[in-house]
């Protein structure tokens, strides 16, 4: 009984952290997908400079640890370039996660675009549509359907990656859990915390499955 009461007393703090975790996951995944579309288009561009730049970006963000990127952006960049100091921890984390996620999204978005039947490009060209119109009106909308599963996967990964924000002292669910763990001197708090993670994951898995079924209907 005592244990249960304790857990309930932690709930308000845990829910505060949950709010940050969910907000960060949603905003940075959205930013990652949008930026990822541009990176993917850049990488398959016939312009060699653009293509190489995008490849370099993807290489850098996939080739270094997210934790270090976050740390670098929040602590190191202001030392070299004080003008780029980011005071909001949330904003700093959002930028780091968004930039990082974009690199991963770019790869599966590129794969989705390249999996579209070449005949689509030919039909569009024969009708006189420009490359931009073909991408915007036909190829990207057709890719969306194939993008739902990997975006869902990226979202669930992000949900867990967000736990790294504790290094810049942003109070997400993991950070709050660890604070309670040390102040209450009991590891019990990990149980409700993990249950919350599972609930969020289950909820968003359900949402992405519904979205997938919905877009499947439209073709």
């Amino acid at each position: 009984m005592d244990t249960l009461q304790k857990m309930i007393s932690w709930l308000p703090q845990l829910l505060d952290g949950t709010r940050i975790t969910i907000l960060m996951t949603i905003t940075s995944t959205c930013a990652g997908v949008i930026l990822g579309i541009f990176l993917a288009l850049g990488k398959i561009s016939r312009n060699v400079v653009i293509s190489k730049l995008c490849s370099a970006y993807i290489f850098f963000f996939r080739g270094t640890p997210l934790l270090m990127q976050l740390y670098f952006l929040y602590y190191a960049v202001p030392m070299f370039l004080p003008a780029l100091t980011i005071n909001s921890r949330f904003l700093a984390a959002f930028i780091a996660y968004g930039l990082n996620s974009a690199a991963y999204c770019a790869e599966f978005i590129r794969a989705a675009i390249q999996s579209i039947d070449h005949g689509q490009f030919e039909a569009a060209k024969a009708l006189g549509l420009s490359y931009g119109q073909t991408m915007r009106l036909l190829i990207i909308p057709q890719s969306i359907r194939r993008l739902v599963p990997p975006v869902g996967n990226e979202f669930i990964m992000m949900l867990k990656d967000v736990s790294l924000v504790s290094i810049i002292s942003l109070g997400d669910l993991t950070k709050v859990t660890r604070s309670i763990n040390s102040s209450a001197a009991t590891p019990l708090v990990f149980i409700p915390s993990m249950i919350i993670y599972l609930i969020i994951t289950a909820f968003f898995t359900f949402v992405f499955n519904r979205v997938e079924a919905h877009v499947a209907k439209k073709e």
Binding site: G119, E122, A123, A124, A126, G128, L138, P141, Q142, E219
Partner: peptide, 17 residues
């Protein structure tokens, strides 16, 4: 070019339209 219509073996209709 626009005045040359083309019909393909595999139709190539746009599935999202």
């Amino acid at each position: 070019l626009l005045e040359m219509g083309m019909v393909f073996q595999r139709f190539n209709l746009f599935p999202n339209k």
